[in-house]
């Protein structure tokens, strides 16, 4: 795999994440290591509760691992202060939240433009990038609507526009096609694929095998552990015991 010989844009090394302590302790991730190179799209699959969202949060600096390390573009996230981490999230990382996370008091366009504006882009520039991204997702006509006036599928597309507006080099998408019909879902995959073909690194959490198949690699998580990887041409059942 030539893509992986380049330096990784995202590198998780022996990452674990434990929620709570004692009797209520949940080990959401256990010793997870994987890398995503520029140009690569990786799909993450696994049953509900297997740690997919936790992994994405940790990868995007929204949550800290309790063990191991996360590096984005060669920088260990734990070496960054709050402000620097926030800056990285606004400039380098595009994040599609499972529950969209749009700000209700802002229009669709304002929501999409916000990260750019916070980063200090001139408002006109950020708005222009926002409109371009909304158009790319086929929701240009919804620019002036507020999230509450949008359907689930429309909110989802606005949330995706926010994650891909500007030049994000790492796109993390948590079930971005959940609220979409099949043909819109495929359109989103095409878009993510194009961004990665243009040099971004992408991680896509999905339940749909049909969507995961757009990825270069499919990583399977179960109970916080990477159990397997489907990669064109590679075989391996790491972490599994094997049939006798």
């Amino acid at each position: 795999m030539t893509a992986r010989q380049q330096h990784a844009l995202l590198a998780l090394t022996h990452v674990s994440r434990v929620h709570g302590t004692g009797a209520t302790e949940v080990r959401a991730l256990r010793d997870v290591s994987f890398e995503v190179a520029p140009g690569e799209l990786v799909a993450l699959m696994g049953p509900s509760g297997s740690g997919k969202s936790t992994l994405l949060h940790v990868a995007g600096g929204l949550d800290q691992p309790t063990g191991g390390s996360v590096a984005v573009d060669g920088t260990d996230l734990s070496s960054l202060g709050q402000a620097e981490r926030a800056r990285l999230r606004r400039t380098t990382i595009g994040y599609v939240f499972q529950d969209f996370n749009l700000i209700p008091a802002l229009t669709a366009e304002e929501n999409v433009a916000l990260p750019g504006e916070l980063h200090g882009l001139r408002s006109g520039e950020a708005r222009e990038a926002a409109r371009a991204a909304l158009a790319e997702l086929g929701v240009a006509d919804l620019a002036d609507r507020f999230p509450d006036d949008l359907s689930g599928g429309q909110q989802q597309r606005v949330a995706i526009a926010r994650a891909v507006a500007g030049e994000r080099r790492l796109i993390l998408a948590d079930e971005p096609t959940g609220a979409l019909d099949t043909s819109t879902g495929e359109q989103i995959l095409r878009l993510l694929r194009e961004r990665c073909d243009a040099g971004a690194a992408g991680v896509l959490v999905t339940h749909e095998a049909r969507h995961a198949a757009w990825a270069d690699r499919v990583v399977f998580l179960r109970d916080g552990v990477v159990v397997d990887e489907a990669d064109a041409g590679l075989t391996g059942l790491a972490g599994m015991t094997g049939a006798r």
Partner: peptide, 19 residues
Amino acid sequence: VDVEYVIQQQRTATMRALQ
């Protein structure tokens, strides 16, 4: 027989075909 393994191995193979 480790049924989980049988399932996962097949899922990976079928996923590869799907890719």
